[in-house]
């Protein structure tokens, strides 16, 4: 699965035609199917370090569109397992080092296609995956590192809890400590940063809220404050940005909107305008979504564009769990 951007381009910024505001499901499905056939492009190779993420995003998009079988299941499982290391962790592609990000993607993919059992059958076992993840928890602070080199980020904390809950192995880590850590990342504006002291950022807010949801501690959130901050992410064009006074981007349709949904404040933004914005970011002919109208499409924005639409209960899309 490739993350190569293009070849499609999102619609024009102006003059949105009514037909453009339809969701172009078939082209999107074909777009995702075509991604692995672009080995004649340099960018395919330059994005190998994202292959497993790309596969997850592609599958997520297909599932949202009700077409889970559009990618061959057996090949998917084979590819995922070929990325696994002896220690249980997964790399982005065969030959790439194990890392939390890809381990989480691997678990998510296998869960999505109901193939977690394959870990026992053909992989190195569910328990080893869980212990790889658990081994990355910082026992002092409760947060998680990405790999042996120790970079810490609330993204990894969320990923760890997410994967462990899918593996039914939450007991392997100290959840309370992880929750305490998230609380220490809270800011006066109600948001959360990448670590204590860091500025609030929509992506990080998503990871912290999702982690708190998994830990069933969403009660720790100052929902009104955070809701106000998140609702101000919507800008005139209907799109959402990640921080105050930054440009809008389709991926925040997911990070912000799902965060609002998790705290019951999704109605604090204009869903219709957001839908229109997301739809303007799709390439209706070649398939795929871009970060904003006029830019190159890629599978990352395709998954999160569709995720956003699904949250906004767009017809034809499967309902999505904000977490």
């Amino acid at each position: 699965m490739s993350l190569v951007s293009g070849p499609g381009r999102a619609g024009e910024t102006s003059g949105s035609l009514p037909e453009e505001l339809q969701l172009a499901i078939e082209p999107h499905v074909r777009y995702i199917q075509s991604l692995d056939s672009r080995r004649d492009e340099l960018e395919y190779w330059l994005t190998e370090h994202l292959r497993l993420n790309g596969l997850y995003w592609g599958l997520m998009a297909l599932h949202l569109m009700g077409r889970p079988d559009a990618l061959p299941r057996e090949e998917t499982i084979n590819f995922v397992l070929s990325c696994q290391h002896e220690n249980g962790g997964f790399g982005a592609a065969p030959g790439h080092d194990a890392h939390m990000l890809y381990t989480v993607s691997a678990v998510q993919i296998l869960a999505m296609i109901d193939a977690l059992d394959e870990l026992e059958r053909r992989g190195k076992g569910r328990a080893l995956v869980g212990s790889y993840i658990a081994g990355l928890q910082n026992t002092r602070t409760g947060t998680f590192a990405g790999d042996e080199f120790g970079e810490e980020d609330t993204r990894f904390l969320y990923g760890a809890l997410n994967a462990l809950s899918l593996l039914h192995m939450m007991d392997a880590v100290n959840v309370n400590k992880a929750v305490d850590y998230i609380v220490s990342c809270a800011n006066f504006d109600g948001g959360y940063g990448v670590s204590p002291g860091a500025e609030s950022h929509s992506g990080q807010i998503f990871t912290c809220l999702a982690a708190l949801s998994i830990a069933k501690r969403i009660d720790l959130v100052d929902v009104d404050k955070l809701g106000r901050w998140l609702s101000e992410r919507q800008v005139e064009c209907g799109g959402l940005n990640g921080r105050p006074e930054k440009a809008e981007d389709v991926c925040y349709s997911w990070w912000v909107a799902s965060s609002l949904a998790m705290i019951g404040r999704l109605h604090w933004i204009d869903g219709e305008k957001l839908k229109e914005f997301i739809l303007r970011c799709q390439d209706t002919k070649m398939g795929g979504f871009a970060d904003r109208p006029g830019d190159m499409v890629d599978v990352f924005h395709t998954a999160f564009g569709l995720g956003g639409l699904s949250l906004l209960s767009f017809p034809d899309l499967e309902e999505v769990d904000p977490v």
Partner: peptide, 30 residues
């Protein structure tokens, strides 16, 4: 990372033979 803010080219270009060969070589080198 994904293509954030990559503007689309002003014209739809089909790669000519020369560009295709160059890309092929770049891939090989890489």
């Amino acid at each position: 990372m994904a293509s954030h803010g990559v503007p689309r080219p002003s014209t739809i270009t089909t790669k000519d033979e020369q560009a295709r060969l160059k890309e092929e070589k770049d891939i090989k080198d890489y």
